[in-house]
């Protein structure tokens, strides 16, 4: 019978079974959520900029929300949309929801808005058609986007249930973007690169553009913050949490940040363990000469 091979620290640290790695991540993420651990959060400048942009909007115009996410990115996009909608409700700013990237987005956005209205206790005062509307999904190809930037009424003739825009108070007469038009701001809550469309087609209209994107997309957007094309940015769930904190909302994102914190800590620990095995291996090689 052959003796079992002895495992040294280098192997133990460097070759942890992947199933153990998965279980560790699961527990590290779950524990803070179950324990409801609350951690203090610093608010970054792009989030403050977005709030400032909302604060400067006129009451007599509408905000267009491009809800361009599907269930895959809901951990980040859903709290972002919720936080933005709740703040618009508090500011009594009318808004119109639409989507250009995912066909399931209008349904997901609709649920978010209905729950936000419920959470703000405005179910009886904030009515569909009068104060907000859902325009549904449109396929964003370049010719349509050009038309949309030129005339909203021409590009979107009815809401997501087929009701003509002229029959809804909130959409009646809403046709142009920017200072001369009826749309004061466009906020893109997205899990894809849909914001590039708005830079290209809406920037000439001087409409204020805000963005709430997933964490991995945010680094690409900093040049646009610098240039002023973007008026504010929410980065992933952290952005949603910062916005909730800034606007004194008790939402999901703030509660979930502890889970994300510990997940990041876990990745850090795993990186240290992996690299420790490399260091031990190097030391052993040197000792052998």
């Amino acid at each position: 019978m052959q003796p079992l091979p002895t495992r040294n620290w280098e192997d133990i640290l460097g070759k942890i079974d992947r199933r153990l790695v998965y279980i560790g991540l699961f527990l590290f993420t779950l524990a803070p959520l179950v324990g409801r651990w609350a951690l203090p959060l610093n608010t970054t400048e792009p989030t403050k900029m977005l709030k400032k942009a909302f604060d400067g909007l006129p009451q007599d115009k509408v905000v267009l929300i491009a809800s361009d996410w599907d269930a895959g990115t809901q951990a980040e996009s859903r709290p972002q949309l919720t936080a933005v909608v709740r703040y618009l409700l508090r500011k009594k700013l009318k808004f119109i929801l639409f989507s250009v990237t995912t066909p399931t987005s209008p349904q997901l956005g609709q649920t978010v808005v209905e729950r936000a209205i419920e959470a703000e206790g405005m179910k009886d005062t904030w009515q569909y058609g009068t104060h907000w509307a859902n325009m549904g999904y449109r396929i964003a190809n370049a010719p349509w986007l050009r038309n949309f930037a030129r005339s909203i009424q021409d590009a979107m003739k009815n809401d997501w249930k087929g009701v003509p825009l002229a029959k809804l108070d909130v959409t009646r007469g809403v046709d142009k973007f920017g200072p001369e038009g009826q749309v004061s701001m466009l906020v893109d809550v997205t899990g894809s690169s849909s914001i590039d469309n708005w830079y290209a087609y809406l920037s000439p209209s001087k409409v204020t553009i805000g963005l709430a994107c997933t964490g991995v997309m945010a680094p690409e957007q900093y040049p646009f913050l610098d240039s002023g094309q973007l008026s504010g940015l929410l980065t992933g769930m952290k952005g949603a949490a910062e916005f909730e904190q800034l606007t004194e909302q008790k939402g999901f994102a703030l509660a979930a940040m502890a889970g994300q914190s510990f997940a990041h800590l876990y990745i850090f620990i795993m990186l240290v363990l992996g690299n420790l095995s490399v260091i031990l291996g190097t030391m052993k090689k040197r000792a052998r000469g």
Binding site: R18, L25, F26, A71, G72, T73, Q74, L271, G274, N275
Partner: peptide, 24 residues
């Protein structure tokens, strides 16, 4: 909604595993 979110969240597990194995 839950199944789509689950599919995407599996990515987190792969990222941790890949970072641990490859980021040396």
């Amino acid at each position: 909604r839950n199944m789509d979110a689950t599919m995407f969240s599996i990515l987190a597990f792969y990222i941790v595993s890949a970072a641990y194995r490859a980021f040396r």
